[in-house]
Amino acid sequence: MSVEAREARQPWILLAPALSAVTLLLFVPLLFILVYSFWLRTATGADQPGFFLDNWREALTDPFYRDILLSTLRIAAITTAVCALMGYPTAYFIARSRGDKLLMVLLLMLPFWISYIIRTMSWINILGASGAANAALMALGVVSEPVNMLYNEAAVILGLTHYLLPFMILNVFVSLEGIDANVEAAANSLGATRWQSFLEVTLPLSLPGLAAGGLLCFVLGAGTYITPLILGGPRDAMFANLVFEAIITQLNWPLGSALSLMLLLVLGALVAIYNRYLGMTQLMKGLG
């Protein structure tokens, strides 16, 4: 074998484990889901193999699924906006801090050491009828009986923000860290106030990080089902909850497969649009 041929093979040999894992653990299961989406559920709950378009027709034409999908996208968008508003100042503070940035980033990552479900359930102890917030309000005489703060859409958005905020902060932080501090100094030396230099120099340069954080928050938020299950009321469901119900409660794997692929396609389209206009480079930096 020639040296050139061996060199050409080497990257593939090195990539082989990762490619095998992605193929076996992602593409093959996706293929199964795709095949399943064309099957049917029989009356007993068993699956009927074949090529039927019923599930896709139902998923695409039934207003129930469309409404929940739109509601899911709306909740994800609000959560992303809240994360951006809360995350940007925090990231800016860390990036411009003279203190130990590594320690601050580490503190930011600290919640990840605790299970997402436990973190979500902790809100029950904070905002519940006998939680810390109500106990404080009643002790201070502000209210005479507990206020209902949980089990509504606001609580779902709060739980999602709690979960997703670190992703936003990290992405914006990485973006801000990449901006040469001299650029801001140059703007100031040319007569710009600090606010003007932020608005016209720092913010535009950090937008890719904000967009990358936004994409992550949106995609992760739109795909969650635990948060509405724990913190939502009877009507508060997101699209992933419908997938869960179809597969687990109704034992309708074919319809669940069609619904999950529908969500995947919608979120995939958003990622493709993002990649078309902003590129995935910043996202990789943020995740790295």
Binding site: I124, G128, A129, S130, G131, P146, N148, L150, Y151, L229, G232, G233, P234, R235
Partner: peptide
């Protein structure tokens, strides 16, 4: 029932928690 309910519970643990916490 749905319109009057605070939330549905999904497990025995959640049932006990909702009643015990006075939710």
């Amino acid at each position: 029932h749905r319109d009057l309910a605070l939330k549905y519970w999904n497990s025995g643990a959640e049932l006990m928690s909702l009643l015990a916490e006075g939710e």
